[in-house]
Design a protein around this nucleic acid. Structure first.
Lengths: 127, 127
DNA sequence: GTAATCCTTCCCGTGACTGGAAGGTCAAGG
DNA sequence: CCTTGACCTTCCAGTCACGGGAAGGATTAC
């Protein structure tokens, strides 16, 4: 399996697959005689795992830890849960921030007539 | 007014104030005989304006446009409203994304016992 | 044989700064 | 007058997680 087949199977761009090996997030793949990277099903499963974790917004370092726990059959689920709970807190913090921004900005947008006249509560608020 | 006084008055780091002049977001300040940047109240007001816009999450280019509209007494409020409405849509899109992530991840975290045993719905879902 | 498609490495760019090094300037105290 | 410390300057590098593209070698299909 060459890199483009592996990337497609994992649902990732080729560049990203190379990048993950460069930073040591996945093991460096074997090479063909011509120097091409050679992937197998196990490597693809790890790439899929990382893609899903990234879709949840886990950072690369969290992915590294999660992948370690994935490969370790003797892990404690507590370790996994701790990482996930931390991410959940990040998400909730961001949600609170966005909620506050949305509330303020939507009031301003509603109060702005949006016509050809210059008076504007949005500008007034910022200035 | 030297840069640190201006930065403090605007509520921004010194580095950021320099950066905004470097990229032409604000006009290059006058210089003292020794080459120090010299700021006045008008420049500080513009920096405060940018800080508030950035706090709403407007990008630098939006800030550039908003600052232009701020300085233009003949602006149409419609132009301001359009920029703000676009930002509001970005916020709402991000909120939907986070809502979806939160829903999925919180279910997984709740379903994970988080003890010393290895079975873990979070890892199962990712793998 | 050759053209198209793959693969490789390498370097630069993203957004909006932030940190730090090397060196010049200024005000206060001894 | 000298020093000390706080300020200022420029420039370079790093952040995060890649993406774009160039230069050049390998493989594959016709």
């Amino acid at each position: 399996m060459n890199i483009s087949a592996a990337a497609q199977a994992a649902g990732l761009p080729v560049k990203t697959v190379r990048y993950y090996a460069d930073i040591g997030l996945v093991a460096a793949p074997a090479r063909s005689a011509a120097g091409y990277r050679v992937y197998d099903g196990s490597a693809v499963r790890k790439l899929v795992f990382i893609r899903r974790a990234r879709e949840f917004g886990f950072g690369i370092e969290d992915c590294r830890d999660l992948l370690g726990l994935y490969k370790d059959r003797d892990r404690c689920s507590a370790e996994v849960k701790q990482i996930a709970a931390r991410r959940l807190e990040q998400i909730e913090a961001k949600q609170r921030e966005l909620q506050s921004l949305h509330s303020e900005l939507s009031h301003l947008v509603e109060a702005c007539r949006g016509d050809s006249r210059p008076d504007c509560p949005i500008i007034d608020y910022l200035g």
